[in-house]
Amino acid sequence: MSRKESLSQFIQQIHGRPVVVKLVSGVDYRGVLSCLDGYMNIALEQTEEYINGQLKNKYGDTFIRGNNVLYISTQKRRGV
């Protein structure tokens, strides 16, 4: 079904690309996407943790458990 293909296509495209991962709690993680699975578990490289828009932590590699993920975005915030 084409509606699903666009999701898997997106998932293939974003490997190795800089992404913003937003958690349900509002915390943002920026980094390079290593990989992603069906639970939306995510492995990131060069991760930066932003809480209330402020850089709080840097991690080399991180594993983010999928249940916390709100969305994965391919671009940097350009909003307010």
Binding site: S34, C35, L36, D37, N41, A43, D61, F63, I64
Partner: peptide
């Protein structure tokens, strides 16, 4: 690291 759990 082919899937996220590989990192673990």
């Amino acid at each position: 690291v082919k899937e996220p759990l590989d990192l673990i």
